[in-house]
Design a protein around this nucleic acid. Structure first.
Length: 805
RNA sequence: GCCGGGAUGGUGAAAUGGCAGACACGCAUGGUUUAGGACCAUGUGCUCGCAAGAGCGUGGAGGUUCAAGUCCUCUUCCCGGCACCA
């Protein structure tokens, strides 16, 4: 075979892009459910800037596994779509005075072109766009199902408000007290908003993490976020009153150390508990707290424990002592019951509080056997000063105290979670309208099914103004009255875009089905997703929401109940940095993929994305590094030209098998940078061989095709094959000898190597050394061969003579 | 403060407890080329040495082991998450 033309990446890549599209090479027949493998990317938000080399990395990795699994005989589904609703499009649209719809469509066009350039094996026939009415019709359906099961509800509460974006934010979207999108300091505002009751599924969301193959750090992040605490509720009745106060504690064993109850200033009983004498001081304190912003509270030194006494006492449930009731803003209103029992001796914060306000401090854990017995000392120990519980250890005391409280109806065991409900209302235009209609009295009803999709009105300027822009739509108001009657009106907030992305992986399976959101049978065959690739930034956002929605759908029978978790394996791709920082337009350090593709070709760029470092670790982009991959491809092209239609030598086959063994292991461990290193080593080996077998090279090409689909497809065709290389099978693994050289060592220091079969006994090895010792070490070694020398022998690997000097 | 993850040449990085630095980038020398570039060959952890070779070397200090980048204890620094969560 003779190929004289040089490696021309642009011509080759253009040709195969067109062929693959024409032949529908990567269209998946979803009805064939045997050996199904669902390989999913976190779909992109189509910004105006297009793709840079950082975006490529995850897409290249998922495409590697999609192609690899096809070669393993799997029926692979690898879809792509666009998370097209959201603030950036709206903000960009405001800036450029175009409609967000137009802006988004243009961006999608750019993204689609760039993604196809990459040569990723996406099944474009299943594409979805979340801002299409055909899609958000079912996002609205999803909302209504949650509404139907009372897991979507509207309620008034203090919410996070971004003054710049003029919208509320979910807890998960507030980072260090600032808006996740724009960085503006978030304020609190009391608003009537829609929530999804994620807390109703806290335990399942917590427990479900045990069964998924996710990176430990993501599981830890989610566990921390859900924040499960086991403990007890304790009821303190208020003296001379019909009220009682419930507190939650993780340390019931310290109940006898309580010297005060502390309520958050927002606690509902505050006005009932405040005595006339204390009223003025309490009012003053509450005003002071209210004027503090979020940031003030956050930046307040932990030692500053401002507080005020209500004038009222509660009764200790076991001692009947009077316990003063205080208010303090170190107690959070929205965690547990918003009230704590104050045990200054054994809690850092309670200690500071008690010191500041001169409250008694009562030790109930013996200071002996505590490593640091300076007050307050935390931790478990032997109980003292606690009546009948003295002498017990903390665990046993807790158990007994909770049992006694339960019997007396003054408490119970309780597990609580830090997770809050998901706030889904947004006061913005570019999102799915919340499908709720209010009657003239303001009562909420589901929008009727036949009125879905509830389309976004077009007659609005979408400038933010503190309420939803669609509240200003005349057409929207008229539409509600026309459909439901005079005085009826639609909800005018839109849904958080994370609702859109919480179920998109179901919709890929039947993207154009107008009769249902997804096909239950297809979902059963294809879910959970086998391999999910995306960035760590969604650890507590998208991934938690998607899990919630999936569990909801499974629990109420919308999907098969066995599908409790949506993503069985997750891989977090490491970010690509430039000059030590995340690529961003504002930092002017964005490396565009387009120019690199033009200059080196997509194959080179794909290879470099994998070669740059371990896939789960951040990588620094080195523009010069790309050359190395390009040289590799040129060499591959050359070696392919020179190969001959002959049987490969045994040694060549063995060398290939060794390569195949090591990369198979590396692929399973997602260590793709070293896969490429092995490929380079093997190619260099072939390059030094006088003759290269065509058959051997073909097998090599198959193993390279998941990384370099274009050049491998071209060479495959030049070798005379009619069908795509992607339809081939991964080469068979065969037995190979593991070692060829044995290291002879003295005190573990390598002296020389001897060639071995790999299965020699220790005696045989000693004989080998005796027969051919290296001249320089001959005398020394022969002396060591005596039987009284201590030796360590590992078959086929090394022999170590231990000499003590 | 609590919970994770790190620290290996000039750079990105390899290394089931078993010859540290594979594979690349960069650099150097030579070849090739009208030139630039591209390509090919050789070398490249540090110190000493013309060399052969010797010594040192995986943030630091100890320990276990015939053998430690890897395991254990302590410690320094960096990154990420949560943060008055009772």
């Amino acid at each position: 075979m003779v190929m004289i033309e040089p490696y021309d990446h642009s011509e080759i890549e253009k040709k195969w892009r067109e062929n693959w599209q024409k032949d529908q090479t990567y269209t998946t027949d979803l009805t064939k459910n045997e050996k199904a493998f669902y390989c999913l990317d976190m779909f992109p938000y189509p910004s105006g800037e297009g793709l840079h080399v950082g975006h490529w990395r995850g897409y290249v990795m998922s495409d590697f596994y999609a192609r690899y699994q096809r070669l393993q005989g799997k029926n692979v589904f690898h879809p792509m779509g666009f998370d097209a609703f959201g603030l950036p499009a709206e903000n960009a649209a405001i800036k450029s005075e175009t409609h967000p719809k137009e802006f988004t469509q243009r961006a999608i066009k750019t993204f689609t072109a760039q993604l196809s350039q990459m040569g990723a094996s996406y099944d474009w026939s299943k594409k979805i766009v979340t801002s299409d009415p055909e899609y958000y019709r079912w996002t609205q359906w999803l909302f209504l199902q949650l509404f139907k099961h009372s897991l979507a509800e509207k309620r008034k509460s203090l919410v996070n408000w971004c003054p710049k974006d003029q919208t509320v934010l979910a807890n998960e979207q507030v980072i260090d007290g600032c808006c996740e999108r724009c960085g503006t300091v978030v304020t609190k505002k009391e608003l009537d908003q829609w929530y999804f009751k994620t807390t109703a599924m806290a335990e399942e969301l917590y427990g479900g993490l045990d069964g998924v193959k996710w990176p430990e750090r993501v599981k830890t992040l989610q566990r921390n976020w859900i924040g499960k605490s086991k403990g007890a509720n304790v009821k303190f009745s208020v003296v001379n009153s019909r009220f009682s106060i419930e507190v939650f504690t993780t340390r019931p064993d310290t109940l006898f150390g309580v010297t005060a109850l502390v309520l958050s200033p927002e606690h509902p009983l505050v006005s009932k508990l405040t005595t006339q004498e204390s009223n003025e001081k309490v009012e003053e304190y509450l005003e002071g707290v209210a004027s503090k912003t979020n940031i003030d509270r956050m930046q307040a030194k932990e030692t500053e424990k401002t507080a005020v006494f209500t004038g009222t006492y509660a009764t200790h449930p076991l001692t009947n002592e009077n316990i003063p009731i205080w208010l303090a803003d170190y107690v959070l209103a929205d965690y547990a019951s918003g009230a704590v029992m104050c045990v200054p001796a054994h809690d850092e914060r309670d200690y500071q509080f008690a010191k500041t306000h001169n409250l008694p401090i009562k030790q109930v854990i013996s200071p002996t056997a505590v490593s640091d017995a300076n007050l307050p000392y935390i931790g478990q120990g032997i109980i003292i000063s606690s009546k009948g519980y003295n002498g017990l250890n903390s665990n046993k005391a807790s158990e007994n105290i909770v049992a006694d409280l339960t019997n007396a109806a003054k408490g119970e065991q309780k597990t609580i979670y830090r997770l809050r409900d998901w706030l889904v209302s947004r006061q913005r235009y570019w999102g799915a309208p919340i499908p709720i209609v209010y009657d003239p009295d303001g009562k909420a009803y589901a929008v009727k099914d036949e009125h879905l999709p509830l389309l976004l009105p077009d007659d609005v300027d979408f400038l933010p103004g503190g309420e939803s822009p669609i509240a200003r739509s005349k057409e929207y108001a008229m539409r509600a009255e026309k459909l439901y009657g005079v005085g009826w009106r639609f909800e005018t907030d839109t849904l958080d875009t994370f609702v859109d992305s919480s179920w998109y992986f179901f919709r890929y399976l039947s993207p154009t089905d107008s009769s249902q959101p997804f096909d239950k049978d297809l979902v059963k065959n294809w879910l959970p997703v086998d391999f999910y690739v995306g960035g760590i930034e969604h650890a507590t956002l998208h991934l938690l929401y998607a899990r919630f929605i999936c569990r909801f759908l499974a629990k109420f029978g919308y999907i098969d109940s066995s599908i409790a978790e949506p993503f069985s394996q997750l891989f977090n791709i490491g970010m690509v940095n430039m000059h030590g920082a995340k690529m961003s337009k504002s930092k002017d350090n964005v490396v565009s993929a387009d120019q690199l593709v033009e200059h080196y070709g997509a194959d080179t760029l794909r290879g470099y994305e994998l070669f740059i470092g371990p896939m789960d670790v951040e990588a620094e982009w080195n523009p010069q590094g790309v050359n190395g991959i390009h040289r590799f491809l040129i060499k591959l092209w050359k070696v392919s030209q020179s190969c001959q239609d002959i049987e490969a030598s045994d040694e060549n086959n063995q060398e290939f098998q060794r390569y195949l063994h090591s990369i198979s292991q590396m692929i399973n461990q997602h260590r793709l940078n070293t896969v490429l290193a092995q490929a380079m080593t093997f190619l260099q080996y072939l390059h030094t061989q006088p003759k290269v077998s065509k058959k051997l090279l073909e097998n090599f090409l198959i193993t390279l095709s998941p990384i370099f689909p274009f050049i491998c497809e071209e060479l495959w065709q030049k070798f005379g094959h009619d069908q795509s290389i992607g339809q081939e099978s991964w080469p068979e693994l065969a037995e190979v000898a593991n070692y060829l050289e044995l290291s002879v060592r003295i005190n573990n220091k390598h002296v020389y190597s001897i060639p071995v079969r790999g299965d020699e006994s220790e005696e045989e090895t000693l004989e080998l050394i005796k027969q051919s010792p290296p001249p320089s070490q001959k005398d020394k070694l022969l002396k060591l061969l005596e039987p009284n020398t201590r030796r360590v022998y590992k078959t086929g690997s090394f022999i170590n003579f231990v000499v003590h000097s």
